[in-house]
């Protein structure tokens, strides 16, 4: 999924995020009919958007919870009947060793590693870019943008091609230096190496968001501060620790939380790798498991329960996100 395309556009927003500009002043001078319209108009303007969001997000949210309490398969679908089984789906999921030994470790482990790496690489790149002269910075920034722009689908296929066991770049190089026999190692077959490739893919696609965001934060820090610190004799590392980190703490927090959300629900990058679309259960994460249960096995109730589990985890992270955000900005 285009995890972070949004954030490019976001930087086009005006740097100020002002509060509402209430029309109170004008309204007082206007005739009563205008005031009535004033009451109705916002709702009129909002109604198409709210309606769409209700149909596309509100109703499905209710429905997915409903389905998660049902044994809902192709038969129920054909007859249009409900088939409530209470908490059975949740019981099955939560007591299965598959969740605890495979899916959850895959999901959480992968997300944690990806977030840590994305933040490290992104921050390092941002700090580095900040030291570059203008022309060099623009050049590097364009390259970073390209990494960001490559769609998840095509990016994943490139990695599948790079690691193709027979003719891929990596396999060929390792064969040439005598480390492996051509075609003898299939990295997609084994869980650990599968996720190593997925991590590389996701980090390579995700670090630009962090780099660009942190860089924009870094550029708001007055240069004089660094110069003063330098005169005081602080080393580069010390300047980073004592100046950059505290100033950019909110930026780091937001980047971390957003990356966490994205990396938890990664679907495309896993599903499109060999074995990720059902061939190899060892590599499922929550999103893929939910999709396979429903659309490959026809167990929509079960799939919904897994989706609810994923949503709940993400909502918890969102709560943290909202808290961070609200402490920084008034609506």
């Amino acid at each position: 999924m285009s995890s972070s395309t949004a954030d490019v556009a976001q930087h086009a927003t005006p740097p100020t995020t002002p509060g509402p500009t209430p029309a109170r002043r004008g309204a007082l001078r206007r005739p009563p009919s205008w005031r009535r319209a004033q009451h109705r108009r916002p709702w009129l303007l909002l109604s198409p958007g709210l309606l769409l969001l209700a149909v596309l997000l509100g109703f499905p949210l209710v429905r997915v919870v409903q389905l998660s309490f049902q044994d809902y398969g192709l038969r129920e679908l054909a007859r249009g009947e409900d088939n409530y089984v209470g908490l059975e789906n949740y019981r099955e999921i939560l007591t299965s060793s598959f969740l605890w030994q495979t899916v959850l470790p895959n999901t959480v482990g992968f997300a944690v590693v990806c977030v840590v790496l994305t933040m490290l690489v992104g921050t390092a790149v941002a700090v580095f870019l900040n030291t570059l002269p203008r022309t060099w910075r623009t050049l590097c920034l364009t390259a970073v943008m390209i990494a960001w722009a490559v769609p998840a689908v095509t990016g994943t296929y490139v990695y599948v091609w790079l690691f193709d066991p027979l003719n891929g770049l990596v396999s060929t190089v390792l064969t040439d230096v005598g480390l492996i026999d051509r075609g003898a190692v299939n990295w997609f077959a084994e869980r650990f190496s599968f996720y190593a490739i997925a991590t590389l893919n996701v980090v390579q696609h995700g670090f630009p968001f962090v780099a660009v965001t942190v860089l924009s934060g870094l550029m708001t820090v007055p240069r004089e501060l660094y110069e003063a610190a330098q005169i005081d004799g602080a080393s580069a590392w010390r300047r980073f620790r004592s100046l950059t980190v505290p100033i950019l703490k909110p930026v780091f927090a937001v980047c971390t939380i957003l990356s966490t959300i994205w990396d938890f629900k990664v679907f495309t990058q896993i599903y499109l790798m060999p074995g990720g679309n059902g061939g190899n259960p060892d590599v499922y994460n929550l999103g893929v498991w939910s999709y396979i249960e429903s659309f490959a096995q026809g167990r929509y109730g079960m799939g919904s329960a897994i989706a609810v589990l994923l949503t709940v985890i993400l909502l918890l992270i969102t709560v943290v996100y909202m808290r961070t955000l609200f402490s920084e900005e008034e609506l």
Partner: peptide, 13 residues
Amino acid sequence: WASAHDKFITSIA
């Protein structure tokens, strides 16, 4: 073949 089974299930549904 690789994606056919899933596709059948999805389109039956």
